[in-house]
Amino acid sequence: MIVAVPKEIKTHEYRVGLTPAGARALVEDSHRVLVQIGAGTGAGIEDADYEAAGAELTADAAELYAAAEMVVKVKEPLPAEYPLLRPKQLLFTYLHLAPDPKLTQALLEREVTGVAYETVELADGFLPLLHPMSEVAGRMSVQIGAHLLQREQGGKGQLLGGVPGVRSARVVILGAGTVGGNALRIAVGMGADVRIIDIDSRRLAALDDHYGNRIQTLMSNSQTIEEEVRGADLVIGAVLVAGARAPILVRRSLVAAMTAGSVIVDVAVDQGGCVETIHPTTHDQPSYAVDGVIHYGVANMPGAVSRTSTFALTNATLPYVRRIAGQGLAEAAKADAALHKGINTLGGKLCSRPVAEAQGLNWSPCPL
């Protein structure tokens, strides 16, 4: 199979879809690997590293897409990349289709087989290809929030961990999954006053056992969310419904009730966000204010720590890439129910029920 790795074009997206070690493994499996020149530079990977691994370099994205049977990316294609996609081509990347009808329509019209990292799901609900980036984003969310709380960033001038005689900042984390758990770890380590809210009592019990009285665990309901968010210095949105649009938990009226200079970091923004006032931003203009509350909505947060993220992502995706390249998607998906769940579009048909429900479209079960 011809596997292609293009250079990401999203603003300040420095990750790349495959490391040289991943390329070498595919070449050793007798596949061709095409890499766009400069694709790995932002992650500290030189073109020569890919050449040494046996990959072929090309400067032209159009040539790369034209030759590719499988395109391995990090982020969803942007409108400028839509014309490069072709029928029956396999696109393996983060797609986040639920809040993006234009991309959904482009994949359907071009009859692209879209396999989304974020909807590859094991029987126990674990998302193996989303997990490493959720770990990164969760840890980053607190350090970003701490930075935005500084006065020169528009925040209230609150030190996250406080000092003796002065209270710590109150951090409220909405969701106790991978993002929330990693945000919790960093917030506790920085000495914040942390409350974490979730609908899963077992998950909250596990966190309580681990952290004890250093945190407060709270069951999610509208009253609890309102009380905690209203008094928060930093709110971390960490809610995920696999493949679907994130539920809105914080309404505009609640944002208006927060203290001016408070901060919201909504990691769920790439699935529409769990805060009504959030919208996607970029690394060059990452934040904005609504009712005096600072909002951070960068949808590719891990791109800022591109080297860590690239290697962590390839560690997770490479076994799937090798299986698909070696067996073909049909056989690989037949043998792996988790991978089968990752198929969002196929032959011009939408195969993801959550995406269909989010956009009011028809869908059909994947025939593979």
Rank of each mutant, 00 (worst) to 15 (best):
V35P: 06
Q36P: 09
I37Q: 14
G38K: 08
G38I: 04
A39I: 03
G40A: 07
T41E: 15
T41W: 15
T41G: 15
A43P: 02
G44I: 08
I45C: 01
I45E: 01
E46L: 13
E46S: 14
E46M: 12
A48V: 08
D49Q: 15
Y50C: 13
E51I: 00
E51W: 00
E51K: 00
A52I: 06
A53T: 09
G54V: 08
G54H: 07
E56C: 07
T58W: 12
A59I: 00
A59M: 07
D60P: 05
A61Y: 07
A62C: 00
Y65W: 15
Y65P: 11
Y65A: 13
A68D: 01
E69N: 09
M70A: 06
M70Y: 06
V71S: 01
V72P: 05
V72Q: 13
K73Y: 11
V74W: 01
V74I: 13
K75R: 15
K75C: 00
E76D: 09
L78V: 14
L78G: 04
A80R: 12
A80V: 11
E81G: 08
L84T: 07
L84N: 08
L85M: 12
P87E: 05
K88S: 14
K88I: 00
K88L: 12
K88T: 15
Q89G: 10
Q89R: 09
L91P: 09
F92V: 05
T93E: 01
T93M: 07
Y94S: 03
Y94V: 05
L95S: 10
L97W: 02
P101Q: 03
P101Y: 02
P101S: 03
L103N: 05
T104W: 05
Q105N: 14
Q105G: 10
A106H: 02
L107W: 03
L107Q: 01
L108D: 04
R110D: 03
E111Y: 12
E111D: 13
E111A: 14
T113S: 14
T113N: 11
T113F: 13
T113Q: 11
G114K: 02
V115H: 05
V115N: 03
A116W: 03
A116D: 02
Y117T: 04
E118H: 01
E118D: 03
E121I: 02
L122W: 11
A123Y: 10
A123W: 09
G125Y: 08
F126W: 01
L127K: 12
L127I: 15
L130P: 03
L130T: 05
P132E: 02
M133D: 03
V136I: 15
V136N: 04
R139M: 13
R139C: 10
M140Y: 07
M140F: 08
M140I: 11
M140W: 08
S141Q: 04
S141F: 05
V142C: 09
I144H: 00
G145Y: 06
H147N: 12
H147K: 13
L148T: 06
L149A: 06
Q150L: 14
R151Q: 11
R151Y: 09
Q153G: 00
G154E: 09
G154I: 14
G157R: 10
Q158R: 15
Q158G: 01
Q158T: 14
